[in-house]
Design a protein around this nucleic acid. Sequence first.
DNA 1: TGCAAGTTTGAGACTTAATATCAGTGATAT
DNA 2: ATATCACTGATATTAAGTCTCAAACTTGCA
Lengths: 140, 140
Amino acid sequence: MTNEVETLSNAITENGYRLTAARKAVIETLVACGGHVSADQLAKRVREVAPQVGRMTVFRTLEVLGKVGVIRPIYQGTGAAHYVLMHKGSHHHLICIRCHQVIDFDQCESGDLTQRLGQKFDFQVQSHLLEVYGLCKNCR
Amino acid sequence: MTNEVETLSNAITENGYRLTAARKAVIETLVACGGHVSADQLAKRVREVAPQVGRMTVFRTLEVLGKVGVIRPIYQGTGAAHYVLMHKGSHHHLICIRCHQVIDFDQCESGDLTQRLGQKFDFQVQSHLLEVYGLCKNCR
DNA sequence: TGCAAGTTTGAGACTTAATATCAGTGATAT
DNA sequence: ATATCACTGATATTAAGTCTCAAACTTGCA
Ligand SMILES: [Mn+2]
Ligand SMILES: [Mn+2]
Ligand SMILES: [Zn+2]
Ligand SMILES: [Zn+2]
C-alpha cells in the first residue's frame, strides 16, 4: 500500500466515514492512475478490478474525499470534472491554452502567501491549487 | 462601457474574431454580473436583454473568450462550469470546503513565481488562478 | 455594385455528465 | 438479538455540453 493510499484512507476514517471495500477500491485506483481522471473514467477502471462497485459509489466516494480535502475537482474543458490529489497540501499546473497540455510541478513558494491570507481573512488554510496559463514551448 | 468590457472586446477583435452584436451582449452581461456564472445562467440573463441570442452562441462566445485567455472555466462542484474573469492576468479565491463560500482577493505576490516558472519550463505565462481551500471563520 | 468565400448564428436533436430515489445490505452499539 | 444508521448499487431523471445544418451576415475582390 503506497503512502498516498494511506493518506486518503486515513482522511476517510479520521473524519468519521467508513473505509469500506468499495471505497478502498476507488482510492487505490485513483492513486494508481495518479489522479487527473473524471468520475466515469475512474468508475470504469475501478470495475476492472472490482466489478461489483457501482457508478454512484464512485461519485459519492469522490465527493467524500473532496469534503475532507484530499482531492479536488478541476475543470479541464472536457465536459466532465477531473480530480487531482491534494494530499500534499497543494497541486500546481502549467496549462497550455492552445494544445491543452498540462505540466505538473511541485515547487511552490506560496506557502508564506497562503499563511498570510489565512490570518487576514480569518481562514484556516488547508491546501491550494495554482494553475498557470499560457503557451508551451511548442505552441508559440 | 466599462473597462472590463473593453478589454474582453479587444481580446476578441485582436485575435481575428468578429465583435458581433450577440458577442457584445454576452460580454456586457458577463461583466455586468462580475463573472462566476455558468453558461446556462449567463444565457438566461443575456436573453433578458437580447432575446434573439441563442444558447449555442453563449457557449461559443465563452469558448472564444477562454481561447484568447481573458476568462477561465472553473469547477465549483455544482455540475456546471463557472466562468471567472482573467483580464487582469490573475484570479484568486479562498474557498471554504464546508459551506462553499468563495472569497475573492486581489493581492497576490506570485508574479515572481510565475515568471520563474516560465523560464524553467520554457513557457510563456499569460495568467494564473490561485485557489486556497480550507475552513472559513464560521465553519470551524 | 455584384458576387464568392468564409464566418457567425440559432433551432433542434443528440450525447454525456451529474443527481435523485429507494429498497436492500452491512456495520455498530446496546 | 435487535434497533439504528451508514453505505450500496440499479434505475430513473435532470442538467450540461456537443453536434449538425441551413440561413444570415461580413468581408474582400471583380
Ligand atoms: Mn496535476
Ligand atoms: Mn472570483
Ligand atoms: Zn501547447
Ligand atoms: Zn465556510
